[in-house]
Simulated scan of single mutants.
Amino acid sequence: MRVLVLEDDHHLSREITGGLRSAGFAVDLAHDIADADFKIAINRYDCLVVDRGLPDGDGLDLVAGARGRGQLVPALMLTARDGLRDRIAGFEHGADDYLTKPFALPELVMRVRALCRRREQPTASRITVYDIEIDLMRRRVARGGVMLSLTPKEFAVLELMATKRGSVVTRTDLIECCWDEMAEPASNVVDAVVAKLRRKLGDPQVIETVRGTGFVIS
């Protein structure tokens, strides 16, 4: 899942992006509304984390503008403005959640995960693929009752393939959803992660390669 963080405080932005990446999200960062607006126009995001007080305006304007263009990506407002009027204004402008500063990073991660899940998989918290159990909320995978140790990136790749089971997931899909803007699409990074994931999942193999296109869990 790919998230855009709009935060102009460099220390806080590093903390937020680091925490989300450790939790398995691909994260892009913007420090002003103009940059964030450009990134939303060219990338597909599963969630926006938006500060309000920014050098070039109010983060609510970014969300309202996205809603005006028909973009329904969930948005969490992250701000020190904790008054009732501020929270109401956030929801009126299209925000889906509101978290005030200071905040606990684990709570932010869970709120972002819930918003992403609402967008992609409104009801499911667990996916079963053959004898593989994927717990989406606890980020755990077991096969045949044996817990597997996956990296956050491996889990993200498996999650995307499992939620789109039966459909081909292209390498471009994986890059856009599971890696941030620092990834190099021309590299073999996707194939390397898929190869490691296959080894950890073991036999019989559940991830099939569609030559020249991508991968599928049928």
Rank of each mutant, 00 (worst) to 15 (best):
residue 74 P to A: 09
residue 65 G to L: 06
residue 65 G to R: 04
residue 68 G to V: 04
residue 75 A to D: 03
residue 68 G to D: 13
residue 64 A to F: 05
residue 76 L to K: 00
residue 81 R to N: 13
residue 56 D to P: 06
residue 81 R to I: 07
residue 51 D to E: 13
residue 65 G to M: 05
residue 65 G to W: 07
residue 86 D to L: 08
residue 63 V to C: 05
residue 73 V to L: 06
residue 74 P to H: 06
residue 81 R to D: 14
residue 63 V to L: 05
residue 74 P to G: 09
residue 59 G to W: 00
residue 76 L to S: 04
residue 81 R to L: 15
residue 48 L to T: 01
residue 67 R to S: 10
residue 95 A to L: 04
residue 83 G to I: 04
residue 83 G to E: 14
residue 47 C to A: 15
residue 56 D to Q: 08
residue 51 D to A: 05
residue 67 R to W: 08
residue 89 A to L: 13
residue 91 F to L: 10
residue 71 Q to L: 14
residue 91 F to K: 05
residue 71 Q to I: 15
residue 64 A to G: 10
residue 69 R to I: 07
residue 72 L to S: 12
residue 71 Q to M: 13
residue 69 R to N: 12
residue 71 Q to G: 06
residue 60 L to P: 04
residue 60 L to Y: 06
residue 78 L to H: 07
residue 90 G to H: 01
residue 87 R to Q: 15
residue 77 M to C: 11
residue 60 L to S: 03
residue 74 P to V: 03
residue 48 L to M: 11
residue 68 G to M: 10
residue 73 V to F: 04
residue 87 R to F: 09
residue 57 G to C: 14
residue 90 G to F: 01
residue 95 A to T: 09
residue 69 R to D: 09
residue 55 P to S: 14
residue 62 L to W: 00
residue 57 G to P: 12
residue 49 V to W: 02
residue 95 A to W: 03
residue 53 G to S: 15
residue 73 V to M: 07
residue 47 C to H: 01
residue 76 L to R: 02
residue 65 G to I: 03
residue 86 D to R: 02
residue 48 L to H: 06
residue 52 R to W: 11
residue 81 R to K: 13
residue 58 D to F: 03
residue 56 D to I: 12
residue 52 R to K: 11
